[in-house]
Amino acid sequence: MDVILNQMDEFAPVAGPVAGLVMKNEPVVIKRRVVRQLGHLEALESEAIHIMREVAAECANPALLFSGGKDSIVLLRLAEKAFRPGRFPFPLMHVDTGHNFPEVIEFRDRRVKQLGERLIVASMEDSIKQGRVVLRSENQSRNPFQSVTLLDAIAEHGFDACIGGARRDEEKARAKERIFSFRDEFGQWDPKNQRPELWDLYNARVHPGENIRVFPISNWTELDVWEYISREGLEVPHIYFAHRRDVIRRGSGLLPISHLVQPKEGEKVENLMVRFRTVGDMSCTCPVESAAVGIGEIIAETAITRITERGATRMDDQTSEASMELRKREGYF
């Protein structure tokens, strides 16, 4: 199992127990008994598996939030790696805004069936019927109200932890959020009052009524997610790949035409090659122009892209500089 590192260790010569293995006449070759160095995806993967297992061990009644989007698709593969050959120690839960892309819902149900795990659908339609969510208009974005349905579902099922696919590179409020993020009994996040998080020693303890949001892929970037999807050969909904779609230009982005979005006066419907970088509420999730019809091409585009994922694709995140922070404070993912 000895390997030869063919690169001189300029910064810090190896000392101690392995020093004896250095061959005298070849100072640039260091021989040591190291199996191998994990690549960055393997390191991130192992970290995420460790986090998921900590949730399973320390929380009494966790759930995993699965939307059918690429980040939660990665979460499901990580859960398989963490818990197989056993079953997942938690149900999956989707907060269904009723504004989802039909392709994504179809994919969600198929994936859940493949896994043989349990899915809970928390429906915003129900929250609306119960009068818990009041909308100004039928077609407005439902993203901000997901928190109500999510918090209701957490209360109804008594979840003490929800595993989500948020990443720190998405947004600056996320950049400051812990991997184990404490929420009070109102589901609120208080950025000034977060638990210190050191090493990989996570504190998942809560009082009844409080909960923890856990983000195992906090340290992944959009590019990491795509590379992982490629490496693992994971299926994703087709709308992530370039396809022809009727869109209009509104604000700084493109909006897909659907029963929720119709051209206003003066807006021209165009048929463009587009793909989605995120899959959310149809009324505010913008596709980007793209010719990437395969994962390799998406990775190539992501590697050189110049706009953040949310900046390009979520109109609701552009309304104010603090919109994500405000929503998180109210209980958002």
């Binding site: 950049a175 400051k176 000034k192 970037t221 922070e325």
Partner: peptide
């Protein structure tokens, strides 16, 4: 620096994580 609370008070809270490759 990121959060609203920080901008209001002109301070930096805590640890923020950045990523580049």
């Amino acid at each position: 620096d990121g959060l609203q609370a920080e901008r209001e008070q002109g301070i930096t809270i805590d640890v923020a994580y950045r990523y580049f490759a």
